[in-house]
Nucleic acid binder design. Structure first.
Lengths: 144, 144
DNA sequence: CTCAGTGCAAAGGATTTGCATGCCG
DNA sequence: CGGCATGCAAATCCTTTGCACTGAG
């Protein structure tokens, strides 16, 4: 796992008044290694020693600390990924059949356009602190 | 409810080999009237006579027939809305606190740009029949 | 020592399903 | 008439929680 991520995570947990325990480090490591949103079953398969309840509890802690983000796909599982500032700004390709999620990025020009549009909408509607999320839905090559 | 929607729904159900029953018509009517994604509790509150299981079952039938679409917000409830071709292409503002969903549209130029970008990504990744979904996340005026 | 973190098992809660009955086609 | 739709209640299954125990600080 990149040292920088590790240090940032440590700092954020400290700021939230939470410890950086072995289980939490393991979770961050798995998510960093995988680089794609992972469901709890996938995480548990990758880390046999981790109790299911600890996975849920710690991911929740990491979410509140701003380390991981919840991703909703098309199947019954919530997925988790490291927040964008630990990795990079990206979006998701979601397979409508199997629910698998893949990352992709948009050209920076389009991102700029989107940000402008988003802040315009935010002004018009009275919603504040608006972030955007762009998902593409289709069939992955395996399910096509 | 607009006659045109009613006729289209009837046709799609027929094509799926499904009946257009009273409950199904009531669901379409409520969703058309509301014009915003609705959760099951909201739907049941609007239609007291409808059994919860019938709501779930019929919305599922309507989804398979291409009449309604599932919308995932930020709370624990799945929401439902009429598909875009029965209404219009739009996106969602999701309140990160209460989960309420509101519609908004983007300027057509931006939509065009997005469609081009989406098809480029689709070509690169091997995903096909890709549609896009843009959600803005923020706090609605009531929760701000 | 203390208290947060952990694992196990049980509870919770949205959604699904089994089954007997009613009604549309 | 026959089969799908319906309502009720029970079952499912992801997720959360209670509790006793362990380990880090």
């Amino acid at each position: 796992m990149p040292l920088e991520i590790d240090a940032t995570v440590a700092a954020r947990l400290r700021r939230s008044g939470e410890r950086y325990t072995g289980n939490r480090r393991a979770l961050v490591e798995i998510l960093a290694r995988e680089g794609q949103p992972m469901s709890i079953p996938e995480i548990l398969a990758a880390e046999r020693a981790l109790a299911q309840s600890s996975a849920y509890r710690n991911l929740s802690v990491l979410e509140r600390a701003g380390v991981v983000r919840r991703v909703v796909a098309s199947d019954e599982f919530t997925r988790f990924e490291l927040t964008e500032d630990l990795t990079d700004h990206h979006h998701h390709l979601i397979c409508s059949v199997c629910g698998q999620v893949e990352d992709f990025t948009l050209p920076s020009g389009i991102e700029r356009t989107m940000r402008r549009a988003v802040s315009a909408v935010s002004d018009e509607t009275g919603y504040n602190a608006v972030s955007h999320r762009i998902d593409l839905i289709g069939r992955c090559p395996r399910c096509a």
